[in-house]
Design a protein around this nucleic acid. Structure first.
Lengths: 241, 241
DNA sequence: CGCGCACCTTGACCGGAATCAAGGACGGCG
DNA sequence: CGCCGTCCTTGATTCCGGTCAAGGTGCGCG
């Protein structure tokens, strides 16, 4: 379920985290190898299953994490159970908000997820010493803000058909970041219910719209989770752009 | 139409900008008086009417601004004209995105607006010299991200009635930031069409819901723009919290 | 004061998505 | 291999909010 993606936050050569035995791109790209080594001493690696709550059980509250692989969904819930997914985070995004308490957003693994976490005080001290690190955080936060606002247009103004097409395009973009090909195939990182919660729809409507796209030969669906798109421009047309 | 509000971004004592003859709170709260003086030499003040485009005509593209008074709406539009307001900015918010091109968001004055602007290169050089300034920007960006995600829940999952109640609560909160009173009165900073574009509804639906709130004695409407709320908790109940 | 226009409200009707309700497909496990 | 549970699809119906179409209201301006 690993979804490859480019590093959207910087083009530096990634550095190696000793503890994670994994490349810390994203935010840690700003660190020198010396600093990364220091950070590595405090970092712990962790692998979780879909559905695991990554906040509330100490992860996001007391620590910050790099997502090494997988997809994390950020969601908000109303008292009566209505739920809205307000963001998806892909590797190598940074998870957690320095200098902020969480704002009623819960983070949950959508797929199998691997994260590398550091204690709050360590990373905050480092930020104090390294303005570049804070700059990286600002960059990622601006990217997330852009994504949130794009999605607000989708939620507020698009039809069900356009919403589902927009979702498929979003996932395909993350699966093939630099792809110029017109034909792609990828796995959906989440269930129909999750997709509905992301799009502000019901599961049934999502299903019907996927069926419609399939019958119109815009997509092929294999095994409910694997989708292929023979012509991305046709999908793009359906997304309302 | 000036809407009073607290400074949500910092609690420093505001400093005075010479050019603006106005308090630069928000982001500029991080500056020393020496630096503010330097900034002031390059800043220009400006007063615009509702409907004025603040981006595209050089303001946001080439410069950054502090909103001194009034409300600015940030919106996205689809090719066929469907529009979604993705954020409202109140004084003393900062308008403009260092190190980023705009992302298809246009900024327009909702009310009479006064802004104080600085050239892009001046503020970016200052940020390079002053990590605290970048920290302020990160803080504001995180706040905007929280607001965007809160609104995504409203757009995706609330009913028309809940959306309109949520909007009124949002405006009343900005009008009386620290108010613990249960009864408030305030002006709506935008037209029914704008409210609809913010809520992902039509003008007619907004109007009907306001009428319903009026008939249920949750609000009183005077002059189409002035609203009084005798009991905020009753309004809050209608917002779905 | 009253004309005219922009903004808002109200009504009638329609349609798209939600809801309610079965039934089907896939995957895990015995 | 076949059972079972979860996830997904499909159908019938309802209902909320959109659309279309008139009026109403308040405000600026002559």
């Amino acid at each position: 379920m690993d979804i490859p993606r480019k590093d959207v936050h910087n083009s530096d050569t990634p550095l190696l985290c000793q503890a994670c035995e994994s490349r810390h791109r994203g935010v840690c790209g700003a660190l020198t190898s010396d600093q990364l080594l220091r950070l590595s001493k405090h970092s712990t690696r962790r692998s979780v299953e879909p559905g695991t709550e990554l906040v509330g059980e100490s992860l996001q509250a007391k620590s910050y994490s790099n997502i090494i692989s997988g997809v994390v969904k950020l969601s908000k819930m109303m008292a009566d159970g209505r739920q809205q997914i307000v963001g998806l985070q892909f590797a190598p995004d940074f998870l957690g908000r320095p200098f902020r308490a969480e704002n009623g957003v819960s983070a949950e693994a959508a797929t199998d997820v691997k994260v590398c976490s550091f204690p709050r005080n360590v990373i905050e001290r480092m930020i104090g010493e390294m303005p570049e690190l804070e700059h990286k955080l600002l960059e990622q936060t601006l990217t997330e803000l852009d994504e949130a606002r794009d999605w607000m247009l989708t939620l507020g103004r698009k039809t069900a058909a356009e919403k589902v097409a927009s979702f498929l395009l979003l996932i395909s973009t993350h699966a093939f970041p630099d792809n110029e090909a017109e034909s792609v195939a990828f796995d959906l990182p989440m269930s129909r219910v999750d997709i509905a919660d992301f799009l502000g729809l019901t599961m049934e409507t999502v299903s019907r719209q996927l069926t419609k796209l399939r019958k119109d030969n815009v997509i092929h669906i294999v095994n409910n989770r694997h989708v292929s798109v023979p012509d991305l421009t046709r999908l793009s047309d359906r997304a309302g752009y």
